[in-house]
Amino acid sequence: MSGSVQDFEHIRAGLERVRARIAAAAAAAGRDPAAIRLVAVSKTHPAEAVAAAADAGQRDFGESYVQEAAGKIDALAGRDLVWHFIGPIQSNKTRAIAARFHWVHGVDRIKVAERLSAQRPQGLPPLEVCIQVNVSGEATKSGCSPEALPALAEAVARLPRLRLRGLMAIPAPCDDPEAQRRPFRRLRELLEGLRARGLALDTLSMGMSDDLEAAVAEGATVVRIGTAIFGLRPRR
């Protein structure tokens, strides 16, 4: 790998700023910042950038492109990192996702969940998964509808090689802090509804660079941050 410490100092500084934002948001909400997992969204950034973040203490990384991620996972195999697949899931990519990742955040239909379960290698622990919910009702956005969620969650929870952990959402962008909170609140309420049905869920994957404070205020346990750590994404 190429790249000096100076080349990647902006990544270390970005991580420090994001951690400080999470700590401040948690304090404002009366929460323990240690209960909020930071996933550094490294998609389109090179393995050297991931290594620089890992050197700064970051362990969880989010990727959206299977082939690109595989190269980074192999290059950094000795680092004991946790890899999260956070992009839309194509049926022809499920075998590689099931074999290479620890977490999948974007399950939105039972066909994909069944393929991930069937293709998860027996030598690995169950794949940790979140169901993506389209809380903003956007026609172009992935995710199951809130109305379809209970049936999907119960079906996913029964699959043998998956462990359903919770819910994920990517709400429509919004600049108003109070308006940002509404879809996150809705996702939290949906999680609480599933718990009331007997599902043992503990994860709300929500919040990105521009709205992590609103997400933490509404109970996020995972925030997915890219630009604020790595800078603008290079073109693939």
Rank of each mutant, 00 (worst) to 15 (best):
S4W: 02
S4H: 01
V5Q: 12
Q6W: 00
D7Q: 13
H10W: 03
A13K: 12
E16S: 14
V18L: 07
R19F: 07
A20Q: 14
A24R: 15
A27N: 05
A27R: 14
A27W: 07
A28K: 08
A28Y: 05
A28I: 03
R37T: 15
R37C: 09
L38P: 12
V39G: 06
A40G: 13
A40M: 06
A40T: 04
P46F: 04
E48Y: 02
A49S: 14
V50D: 01
A53R: 06
D55V: 01
A56F: 04
G57P: 13
G57K: 08
Q58K: 04
R59Y: 03
D60P: 04
D60A: 15
F61W: 08
Q67F: 01
Q67S: 07
A70Y: 03
I73P: 12
D74A: 15
A77Y: 03
A77N: 04
H84W: 13
H84V: 13
F85T: 12
N92W: 02
K93T: 11
T94P: 06
T94V: 06
A96E: 14
A99L: 03
W103M: 08
H105W: 05
G106I: 00
D108H: 11
R109L: 09
V112S: 09
R115L: 15
Q119S: 07
R120S: 10
P125L: 09
L127Y: 12
L127V: 13
E128L: 14
S136P: 13
G137Q: 11
G137N: 11
E138F: 11
A139I: 04
T140G: 02
K141P: 13
S142G: 10
C144S: 11
A148M: 05
A151D: 15
A151K: 13
V156S: 09
V156K: 09
A157W: 04
R158I: 00
P160K: 10
R161I: 02
R165H: 04
A169D: 09
P173L: 12
C174V: 15
D176A: 10
P177S: 01
E178H: 12
A179T: 14
A179Q: 15
Q180V: 00
Q180K: 03
R182E: 15
P183V: 10
F184Y: 12
R186I: 06
R186T: 15
L187G: 07
R188M: 01
E189L: 15
E189H: 11
E189C: 08
L191I: 06
E192I: 02
E192T: 09
A200I: 02
L201M: 09
D202E: 13
S205A: 13
D210L: 05
D211I: 00
V216E: 03
V216T: 02
A217K: 10
I225S: 02
G226I: 03
I229E: 08
I229R: 05
R235F: 09
R235Y: 09
